[in-house]
Each structure stands twice: as structure tokens, then as C-alpha cells.
Computed example of a mutant assay.
Amino acid sequence: MNIAAHPKTMTPPPLHVALPGALAEGVRLMAARRGDHPQVLVAALMSKLVDDVARVADLMGDSVAAEEAPGQGRRVLESFPQGLTQRQCGVIYVLGFHADEDGVFRKQLIKIGIILNGVEITSISDVLAALSRKGLVDQVRGREGKRHWQLTRSGRRVFKELNEGESA
């Protein structure tokens, strides 16, 4: 008796996405008009986009998804009324608390991810780039060309407000 061996295949874990209020309601209404379940409609739309990089580029243009995505746990601050995601607040918090006396964060970026409970280094890099575009952090060159980060004046105001919120 011959038994054919099947190669093990790894199934990627599912991705669960929560849509904020107005967007979720819009999906529900669209699904109802079509006679679809909202989750099935979203999955069908996403499956059409996943393999169509050009269509995603047309839809998104030059904007960065992290800046466009509604919801995402945004926190509106007096010092930064446009709002920041919880992860952006976390990175500012880590940079503020773990900077050297001169205000420069010289640790490896992976340390930020560890402090923030296992956030991937690519995500940390994306957050730092977004915070830099918002004028909240600056990249500084250290010895041997290493990249370090520091909060700008605006970033320090945000950090101070976040820190005061913890003691309240």
C-alpha cells in the first residue's frame, strides 16, 4: 500500500479588521443594497484589490495608508489636534522616556518594538516616518553614520501632554 505524502502547506493567519462607525455603516448599507453579507462583500472587494497593485496605487495615490485610515485608535491632543494613532503616541512616549540626557534616542529601533509589546520593526519605521512628516520627530546622525531619533519641540509638547495624562 502506497501512501502519497502531501507537502505541508502553511495557511496564513486570518486578518481581522475593525471598521469605524461611519465606514462600517457604509459597508453595511452597500451590502444590503446588493443582498450580500457585509463581511463577504469586504472580503470579495479586498480579494480583487490584493492582486491589482495598479488599482491600489490609483486609489491611494501618494498618500500613506496610516494617515488615511479612519479610526485606528486615534487620540486627539490639545498639543496636536489632528490626532495621533495609539501606536504613534506609544512611539513618542518611548522616545521621550528612553532618550539620553541630550534628548536623543540612541537605542536600536527593535527596542521600541519590544517596549511596545512586540511591534514589528517595519511598523516602527513606518510610524517614525509618519511622525517625521508631522514634524514631531527628527532623525539625527550619530557616530559611524548610525541613525538616531529625537522629539522636536512639537513632539516634546505631545510627550508632555501624554505624560501628564498618565499621572491624572
Rank of each mutant, 00 (worst) to 15 (best):
E166H: 09
N117S: 12
S132Q: 14
G155N: 03
I115V: 08
I114Q: 14
K111M: 13
D126N: 14
L128W: 06
V104Q: 03
T152M: 07
I115F: 04
E101C: 00
R157L: 04
D126S: 15
L109H: 08
V140D: 10
S123Q: 13
V119T: 13
G103A: 07
G113R: 02
L109N: 09
T122V: 10
S125P: 00
Q108Y: 10
T152W: 08
Q139E: 12
F159E: 01
A99G: 04
R153P: 02
G113S: 06
A129D: 15
Q150H: 06
W149L: 06
I124L: 03
D138H: 14
D138T: 10
I112Q: 10
E101H: 11
K107L: 14
I124F: 03
L128N: 09
N117Q: 13
K134S: 10
G113D: 09
L128R: 11
I121R: 15
K146L: 13
L116F: 01
C89G: 12
L131K: 06
W149F: 15
G165S: 05
R153A: 12
E101V: 08
Q108V: 09
L151C: 08
N117F: 11
V137Q: 05
A129V: 13
V127I: 15
F105T: 07
T152A: 01
S132N: 15
R141A: 13
Q88S: 14
V137I: 13
L109A: 05
G96F: 05
I110M: 10
R87Q: 10
I115W: 01
I114G: 07
Q88T: 07
G113E: 08
V94P: 03
E161C: 01
N117D: 15
E161R: 04
E144W: 02
L116R: 00
F105M: 07
G142T: 09
E144F: 07
V140F: 02
F105S: 05
D100F: 00
F97W: 00
G103Y: 07
E101P: 06
S123G: 13
N163W: 00
V94W: 04
S132F: 00
A130I: 15
F105H: 12
G142W: 09
E101Q: 13
V127T: 15
G118A: 04
R133N: 12
K146S: 09
G90E: 05
R157M: 04
R106S: 03
G145Q: 02
L162R: 03
G103N: 05
R153V: 13
L131W: 04
S132Y: 04
E164H: 06
T152D: 01
L131T: 04
I110A: 09
V137E: 09
L131Y: 06
R153I: 07
R106T: 11
G135T: 04
I110W: 11
D138S: 14
A129E: 14
Q108H: 12
E164F: 01
V94N: 01
R147L: 11
V91C: 07
V91T: 05
K146M: 05
V140A: 03
S154P: 06
E166I: 05
G142E: 11
R156I: 06
R157C: 00
I114K: 15
E120K: 10
L131N: 06
G155H: 01
R87K: 11
R106L: 01
V140N: 03
G145R: 12
V91F: 09
V91E: 08
